[in-house]
Each structure stands twice: as structure tokens, then as C-alpha cells.
Write a protein that binds this DNA or RNA. Structure first.
Lengths: 336, 336
DNA sequence: ATGAAAGCGCTAACAA
DNA sequence: TTGTTAGCGCTTTCAT
């Protein structure tokens, strides 16, 4: 910056003022400074600025992985918002518990970001408590965190609506398939199972734990085994509600291999509405991670810029059932 | 840090040394400092450090989007590597040309990162030139950049192998479908088409521009139209090589709707080997973005830490054809 | 409208 | 092994 100042024949203060777009700079000087800066290929060091302003100009995101439809959509949607506010996005990827422990051990975001976006969906209370002490706004995405700003969908209600759809089609034996082993998803998963159960209870259908199975979506063998368990029941299900599209699609694939027609002999319902859902003609409960990302971005922005923004604002996003071809009336039933 | 020093009864330098794990600190003092730091919930400000060390401790990534299999896999794989080296990852998402222009206009990474990973696959020469002046290592991922460190696959050779597979199956009318409108993919796209053409030429099959069509994978209508064009030809193709799995899968979906059996009446070949490929039983040319991410990470690490690392190292990653059920001998042909 | 000077939190000589 | 001191590149009073 000193170089720029010298070249433009002004002081560093003036350069600083100009580059930050402050008003009290004469047009003449402004032009000179900008020219000099350009000529020297100068860019302000955020690090030096942040040292004195106390603001870092970065938003941190704690994510379990980047390798998923949800995270990709959410963060992609977030990007433009942050850029518009001249904020950078730094991402902490913690694919396993060890990495996450390391994050919480050192809390590198502390003092190195203006806000934190948490995309881990199964924080322990202790972890949340540590985040409370971070001294910066922490926004929880895709989970409802009491007394803290959060953006989420009502997973329980959404799952309930999904199961109702199956009930309306006349299904009474409805299995629920969870995506086992996916660290970081248990919060939503739990809520969805609860919603599913609630719908069943409301319809007077007895709960049956043998109808709840689990398998990682990517593990075809595990999915096949889970399916085997269900089919081996004395009274096998006529429909399966998979808590994620990827799992649902994996299940459909497995069913096809076993020559079990979908939806004729087995209805399959998903959750998410990923692009693959349409390709598999999968009925599913849609949510929009892109909207979540945007809302979270706006929330974070307001929290950073406006000191008396509601520090516990909740944004509840809608879900909706998308009927496609993977669900049909139970055998011997009329359409609803 | 002053607080920690006071609490531990030592000077700030000692605290600094301790927290950076330097050796010349007595065990006793080390323990006191660590205790004090913990008690005060202290974390070093990277910004202040970087001001004096000149190293920022962050690696920047310029990406067209986060919302794709390729980017997700690559960046997810990169994460642990960077974390192990105590580096942060900041992501610049530039979904459109305007955003990208803004990035190049301000080059925010300058002085705010120790290295840059470029995942945009269609940089102009001018853009590359600007990156050369950045004063930090710039690693190109998924593209071969002359004289600059890059990690990539040989798209041309890979596509050539793909087309050869179709030729071996007896196909002679082979269409090539590009994913139109996907900003940031034209480099690979171009190379793949070249490789395809080369294989045809080598086999003595005449090139026919009417067999090259384009459509965005997500736009079903456009895919249907492109397919229509091909089917409307006097001599329609018996196989289609889609330059991406998503497009291939979208095409298969469209073919099914039109009651054109795959592979009986039309073979379809993809490129990538995304998870969806297996679900659609798609024969495809596999590449591994996760490996690319890892290699890029290691390259970047070596460039940052080792001043005399080869500044133009190239890492060429393998691809391989994965035969599945979406390709079959052309009608009237024997298997190869 | 502009400049001089102090200081943000840290690290890196240098001294002790 | 530890402490003292001088900046790193900026922003921000406070003068002018």
C-alpha cells in the first residue's frame, strides 16, 4: 500500500480511504490512486485490515463433507450472497469423528472468521456449548437449535406427510429405511422416523420395529440385506419409505434386480428430491438445500452487519410431496 | 495472547513459541502456558501471524460451482490433506462469467492465500496470464496447463478408448453428445470430442458433423430434441457417446420414454463413472476426481513448503473403461 | 480533503 | 530457556 501511495503521490491513509470507497476523497486523487493500484497489481491484505478492524471478512462453514447433493447445493447457493457482501467462505471439512474432534479441539474458526455456519447435523450438546462461546454468530443449517439462529425444514412433519401419502394409497405395512453410518445425519433421520411413526399411529396402524431397517445408500449389499430382512417377515411391507433419495434409488435398483416391480409389488418413497429422483421416477418429499443455503447466508449477513438482529431467528422452510411413479395403491386398493 | 502470557506468568514470545510447538520451551512452562491458553479459550489469530510470517495458512480454490459430483469429490478429498498440514481452504465460487470476471478483476486471493487451485476448465489465456502474476503457486486441476503445475487425465485418450469400445462392438454410426452451456467444462469437452474423432478416423469411419449434438444434462427437453435430431438423420446412429454420465443418464431416460431399448436399439456410453452410472448400468469411462483432489493437494503442499519443488510438475491420472450393460454389439454384429 | 502517528496481535531477531 | 524490541500492512483517530 505504501508503494501505491508513493506512486500516486499521496499518503497511505488516502490510499486506504480510496480503496475502501470512502466518500471524502477528491475525484482527482481517487483516479490517481486507482490507477496506481491497478498498475502495481495491488490487492489489500485482508489479514492486515482485519487486524485493526477486528472483522475478518470471512464466513466459516463446518461441513461433514462436500461430496453430497445437500452440501453442494447449499454451499453453491451461498456463494453469490457472500461474494456480494465481499465475504470469503472458508470450509472446514470433517468427514469423520476424529476430524470433527480436531476441529472442536482447536476451534480454528475462532478469531479467524466473522461467523460460522454449522452443517453438521448431529452435534453433541457439549459441542454446541463450545460454539456458543465462540464469540461470533453461529448459524445452524438443516437443524433446529434451541435459542440459536437456525434454518431448517420440519423433518418430522415432512416425513409424516410422506407416510400419509402411503397410507392414503392403502398401504398398511410400511417399512422405514434409514441410511446407516452416515455420520452427521442422525438429527434429521431421527425426526423423520418420528414423523413416520406419528403418521402411522394417527392412522391406527400398529408400530412394528421389524419394519425399520438401516443401510448405507452406497452399500448395495447392505441395502439388499435390509431388503431381504423386510421380505423375510411373516407379513412383508408393501411400501418402503427411504429417508433419502439416494437410499430410495439404491433400493429401487435392488428391487429391480430381484424382479420385484416398483410400484406394482412395492411402493418406494424417497426424501430430498435430488435430480436422480426424477430419473428414477421416484415419489419423494422435496426439500431445497439451495434455499437453505440462501436463507442461511442472509441470516449470517444480518447477524454480522446488524448488531441488534434477532440472535435466535429461526427460518422454517417448506417441503412438499412430489408424486411420481414409484408409489401406487396397495394391492387390492382403490386410488385415494 | 498477552492475557495468556500474563496468566501463565511468562512473556508473549514464550507463549508464541509454546503454541507453535517450538522445541526450546521447558516442559514446565509449556504446561503452564497450555493450561492458561485452554482456560482462556485462546486461539491464535492467523491473521496477525500471517502479517509477520508472510504465510497466510490458507489455500484458495477457484471453482465454477460446488454443486457437482466432480467438485464435491475433489474438494472432499482435498480437505483432510489440508487439515493435516494445518491449512485452511477458502473457496471462490464463480458460477457464471460475471462472477468469474469479478474474481479476476479483484483477484482477492492475492496476498490472502499461499496457493491457488484452479478448477475452472476454460480459462482464457489472459486469465491464466493474470494468475501467473499472482505471486503464489497456482495448480490447475483437470486441465493440462503448459509450464504450470497441473493434475489431469488425458481426456483425449480416454475418449478415444471409449469410442474404440463402441467401434469394437461393431458400431459405425456413433453420435457424440456434448453438455451444452456448462460453463467451465469446455476444455475437457473439446479434448474428448477430439479423441472421439481420432478413434473414428483411425478406424476409417468418416466424420459426420450431424452426429455431434449438444444439450445440458439437466434440460430434459433439450436432450429430447438432440436425440430427435439424431433419430431424424437419414442414417441414425446406433450408439451415442455422451461426454458426461449425467448427460448419458438423461439420455437413457429419454430413450426409455421413447421406447427405444438400451442397449438393444441404442448403445449409450458415458464418461466419469459417477455413482448414478452404476444405477443405470451405464458403460462409462471412469475418472477419479477424488484422486485428482488428493494429487492436487499434495502438489500444492509441496509447492508451498518446498521452495525448489518443480514449479511445472504434471500429474497425469489414469482413466479406464467400465463395461456395463448400456452398450452392446451393433445390430447384426458379433461381440468383439 | 489529506497526512502523521499510533497500534491491532503476532513473530523474529537479538540479548540476556 | 526466556524476555525485549521492532516491525508485518493496514485502519483510525487527530491534526491540519
Amino acid at each position: 500500500m505504501a508503494d501505491v501511495a508513493e506512486r500516486a503521490g499521496v499518503s497511505v491513509s488516502t490510499v486506504s480511504r480510496t480503496l475502501r470507497g470512502l466518500s471524502n476523497v477528491s475525484p482527482d486523487v481517487r483516479a490517481r490512486v486507482e490507477k496506481a493500484a491497478r498498475a502495481l497489481n495491488f490487492a489489500v491484505s485482508r489479514h492486515a485490515s482485519s487486524l485493526v478492524t477486528g472483522r475478518t471478512g470471512v464466513v466459516a462453514a463446518l461441513v461433514p463433507t462436500l461430496d453430497s447433493w445437500f452440501m453442494g447445493s447449499a454451499l453453491s447457493a451461498l456463494g453469490p450472497l457472500l461474494r456480494a457482501a465481499d465475504l470469503e467462505l472458508t470450509v472446514y471439512v470433517t468427514p469423520d469423528l476424529a476430524e470433527r474432534a480436531a476441529f472442536f479441539e482447536r476451534l480454528p474458526a475462532r478469531r479467524n472468521a466473522d461467523a460460522l455456519l454449522v452443517f453438521c447435523f448431529d452435534l453433541t450438546d457439549e459441542e454446541s456449548a463450545r460454539l456458543d462461546d465462540l464469540g461470533m454468530p453461529v448459524v445452524y443449517v438443516s437443524q433446529h437449535a434451541d435459542g440459536r439462529p437456525s434454518v431448517y425444514v420440519d423433518d418430522g412433519a415432512a416425513a409424516r406427510a410422506g407416510t400419509r401419502h402411503l397410507l392414503n394409497l392403502g398401504h398398511r405395512r410400511i417399512a422405514f429405511m434409514q441410511s446407516a453410518g452416515a455420520t452427521g445425519f442422525s438429527f434429521s433421520s431421527h425426526e423423520r422416523l418420528l414423523g413416520h411413526r406419528r403418521a402411522l399411529t394417527e392412522a391406527g396402524v400398529p408400530l412394528d420395529d421389524s419394519l425399520v431397517v438401516a443401510a448405507p445408500a452406497a452399500d448395495r449389499r447392505a441395502v439388499a440385506e435390509a431388503l431381504g430382512e423386510l421380505l423375510g417377515l411373516r407379513e412383508p411391507p408393501t411400501a418402503v419409505f427411504a429417508e433419502q433419495d439416494e437410499l430410495a434409488v439404491s433400493l429401487i435398483w435392488t428391487l429391480r434386480r430381484s424382479r420385484i416391480e416398483v410400484p406394482e409389488r412395492m411402493s418406494v418413497l424417497g426424501f430430498d428430491d435430488q435430480p436422480v429422483a426424477e430419473l428414477f421416477d421416484l415419489t419423494t418429499v422435496a426439500q431445497s438445500p439451495a434455499d437453505m443455503g440462501r436463507e442461511a447466508g442472509e441470516l449470517v449477513l444480518s447477524l454480522i452487519t446488524d448488531p441488534d438482529a434477532d440472535p435466535a431467528r429461526h427460518v422454517l422452510l417448506p417441503t412438499r410431496l412430489i408424486p411420481r411413479g414409484s408409489t401406487a395403491p396397495a394391492i387390492g386398493e382403490e386410488t385415494d
